[in-house]
Structure formats: structure tokens, C-alpha cells
């Protein structure tokens, strides 16, 4: 699964995949079988809350990726419509840097990004740097939910300063087809490493068990941990699925035994 975070509807237009809007009270969320996209709103607070929200809602797996795609500004106007992968992001206020893991190759040129608290004027910009308002927060919060090598940021240059943004200057036909193909392949390759098929089997098996939803979720996490520790879990899983209880007390006691094991 690829989690895509964009800050506006205009940026969503670059994601050419067919997505269906889902019912959600707080955010605009779109999905298909391979993508979950959230429109966060502009700024660090919005992107932070949207990532936390979407991750709590869908509980990403270890082989899921997250991508921030959006507009950025740069000093030189000649770069408008260029697309760059971000390798370093700096928070302008904190004056701190964070570095993306560059294990995977997306075939894009790279740049460093500075995240500002507000739109920036051209004369405030340094050469060769990109500027946005969400990047640092996106990366910082994503690291709580995703392994570093699964976090990506791609920026399309939209303007060269605060007063120069005009959607008419931006080529909306640029798709990210090749990039998405690579991201799908990355996620698929990691399935084996993280034993995702086995996890899916555990989840589908646990549906038949006689536990509450919360208990099922916790048991699944426990069994997955056993799996990653190399323990044999088929017999235990079989026992859990078939176990019947005379009452809630008995069920809860058994549940406690599994969780504490």
C-alpha cells in the first residue's frame, strides 16, 4: 500500500490513479487497492494531524510506503515544472536537518528542501534549495509509523516566490506513473522480508475466533511478533481459532495468557 499525502486538491490532480472518495468526517480521503491518499491542508500542523489520522485509521503494515507529493518554490524560475526527489529537509525555525534514506532509486534528480512557516519571497531564498511549508513535519511524523527507507518526498516546482504562484504556469499532465510503478515494486519486494502473507493469513484466520475485536487485534500483534521471532505459530493459531468459552471470564483469562506469553 502507498500512503500519499498531498496538501491541496490541485496537488491531488497529479496522482493519475483511479481513486474513490471514502466517507470521512475529518479529511478528504481517497483510495484504491494500492493507494490511500489524504488531502491534509497546507502547513505543518495539518500534515502532522493528517498522517497520524490516516495511520490510526488504516494501520500501515511494515512494507507500506508513504509519499508526500506537492508543490515547492525555488529561486530560479527556469526550474518551474521540474520534479525533484528530496534527500534532505530542514526546518527553518528549528535550524535542524533530517536526512531521507536513499536505499531506493526513483530515477529523479535530488534536492534539499527547507520548510518555512509561511510562503517565502524570492529574495529570501538560497540558490538550489527548494521551499515548502510541510516537508519537515511530514518526514518527522512519518518516521513514527514507517521505516525510514519507506518514506519518500517528491516536489514539483510551482513558482519562484510568494507572489509568483499561478496554477496556469504548472503542467498538470505530468503523471507519476513510473514513480508509482517503482513504489509498488518496492512494497511488493518487502512483503517477503516482513512476512506480510503470513500476517494476512493470521488476520484472516482470526476472524473465526471467539474474541472481541480489540482482543483479536492484540492477539494478531502477538502472533506476528512470534512470527518475526522465528517461532512456530500454526499450532497456537489453530488452538486460538478453535477455542470455545463458557463465559466472558473464561475467554478473558485465556486472552490474558496469550498476551502475557
Amino acid at each position: 500500500m502507498i500512503y500519499v499525502v498531498v496538501s491541496s486538491k490541485q496537488e491531488k490532480r497529479f496522482i493519475k490513479e483511479n481513486l474513490v472518495k471514502i466517507k470521512d468526517y475529518f479529511f478528504d480521503i481517497y483510495e484504491n487497492t494500492k493507494i490511500k491518499l489524504i488531502i491534509s491542508g497546507i502547513g505543518a500542523y495539518n500534515v502532522s494531524s493528517s498522517i497520524s489520522y490516516i495511520c490510526r485509521l488504516f494501520e500501515p503494515q511494515k512494507n507500506d510506503l508513504i509519499l508526500n507529493y506537492g508543490f515547492a518554490a525555488t529561486k530560479e524560475i527556469k526550474y518551474v515544472n521540474n520534479i525533484f526527489r528530496i534527500n534532505t529537509v530542514k526546518d527553518f525555525c528549528l535550524n535542524k536537518n533530517m536526512y531521507f534514506d536513499l536505499t531506493y532509486d526513483l530515477g529523479l534528480q535530488e534536492r534539499s528542501l527547507v520548510t518555512m512557516p509561511k510562503p517565502v519571497e524570492n529574495n529570501e531564498m538560497e540558490k538550489n534549495m527548494l521551499y515548502d511549508m510541510e516537508g519537515y513535519a511530514f518526514y518527522q511524523i512519518s518516521r513514527k509509523f514507517f521505516d525510514r527507507q519507506n518514506i519518500f518526498m517528491i516536489k514539483k516546482i510551482s513558482d519562484n516566490g510568494k507572489n509568483n504562484f499561478d496554477l496556469k504556469n504548472i503542467d498538470l499532465n505530468d503523471g507519476l506513473d513510473k514513480t508509482f510503478e517503482k513504489l509498488y515494486n518496492i512494497s511488493d519486494e518487502q512483503e517477503k522480508i516482513y512476512k506480510i502473507k503470513e500476517l494476512k493469513y493470521i488476520k484472516s484466520s482470526m476472524i473465526k475466533s471467539n474474541f472481541t475485536k480489540v482482543q483479536k487485534d492484540l492477539i494478531i500483534k502477538k502472533l506476528y511478533q512470534f512470527l518475526l521471532d522465528g517461532k512456530e505459530i500454526n499450532n497456537l493459531l489453530d488452538e486460538i481459532i478453535k477455542k470455545e468459552f463458557n463465559n466472558k471470564r473464561e475467554r478473558n483469562c485465556y486472552f490474558e495468557q496469550i498476551i502475557k506469553s
Partner: peptide, 28 residues
């Protein structure tokens, strides 16, 4: 190779939100 200047190596090296085995295939 692309050179990226940093303040402290731990900013890149530290943190267990990395996968050692996956990174091993493309070491920096």
C-alpha cells in the same frame, strides 16, 4: 557519488526506524 554535508553522523546513522538488511543492499 552525490555528497551530502551533515552536522553529525548520528543524524543519518542512528534511529531504529531503519531496516539493516534492506540498507545492506545499498550501503552509503
Amino acid at each position: 557519488s552525490k555528497v551530502i554535508y551533515i552536522d553529525d553522523y548520528k543524524e543519518v546513522f542512528s534511529g531504529f526506524d531503519q531496516n539493516f538488511s534492506i540498507q545492506k543492499q545499498s550501503q552509503k
